[in-house]
């Protein structure tokens, strides 16, 4: 019963993020076909790779005939930031069996991580927090598959003037701001923001990792000072 409630809560808390994810999924589907993938290939990539920005980059590189090795390395580098999520989630799911760990790793995207980690940081000792993670992850996974299919089959497109892509930044604001409770985390947020903007020109979204490392360093330094 508690497990089911956690699952439901995770699913529910992920829903606001889907507003930003669905248009991306649809646009990915359209782009993939334009890049020459078949409908089956486009949908399979959403299942097998399951990583939005990497998928966008992959289909664009494939469209211009980039050598396979370059495509693979690019995909790898874009997704490297997930290693940070992996390290951050790891201590919380240590007690789970390998099947759970495999499943949750597969579902560990930006948006699922953002929601799941807020649950792990709540102090209550619920033994079912991984069900919350699973609920959030599956909500995101299904919406990504459905929106890919919609993009692929209908070719429908939400007008960009609706600016729905902005909801993703807003969701992350809603998650970050309440977590800025002490000087070290505020300093981490500010320094990561500044570095992310300064290094925005780096390829493969490497600015995210650079900024995260600087932010973490400033946070640690401020704890000591």
């Amino acid at each position: 019963m508690h497990a089911r409630k956690e699952f439901f809560n995770g699913f529910r808390d992920e829903l606001p993020l889907l507003l930003g994810v669905m248009p991306f999924g649809m646009i990915y589907g359209i782009l993939a076909l334009a890049a020459g993938l078949t409908t089956g290939e486009a949908q399979a990539m959403s299942v097998i790779v399951f990583a939005g920005s990497a998928q966008f980059m992959l289909v664009q590189l494939l469209a211009v005939g980039t050598p396979a090795i370059v495509v693979i390395v690019t995909g790898f580098i874009i997704n490297l930031r997930h290693a940070l999520y992996s390290a951050s989630i790891a201590p919380h799911i240590k007690q789970l069996n390998p099947l759970w760990k495999t499943l949750l790793s597969y579902l560990l995207t930006d948006e699922a991580y953002a929601i799941a980690i807020t649950r792990y940081y709540k102090r209550d000792a619920s033994p079912y927090k991984h069900f919350y993670f699973l609920g959030a992850g599956l909500a995101l996974w299904s919406s990504w598959q459905v929106s890919t299919a919609v993009g692929v089959f209908l070719g429908a497109q939400i007008p960009s003037s609706w600016s729905l892509d902005f909801t993703l930044a807003l969701t992350f604001i809603a998650i970050v701001i309440p977590s800025l409770k002490d000087r070290p985390s505020i300093l981490a947020a500010i320094s990561a923001s500044v570095v992310a903007v300064i290094t925005a020109g780096l390829p493969y979204k490497l600015n995210l990792i650079t900024a995260a490392i600087v932010g973490i360093a400033f946070g640690l330094w401020s704890e000591k000072a």
Partner: peptide
């Protein structure tokens, strides 16, 4: 211990790094 303490800053650092360019670029 240092790594454990560092992990606390992962969400705030990564998510801020995603937000900031969206707002100012």
């Amino acid at each position: 211990k240092l790594v454990e303490r560092a992990l606390r800053f992962v969400p705030v650092a990564v998510l801020s790094a995603i937000i900031a360019p969206e707002l100012v670029l």
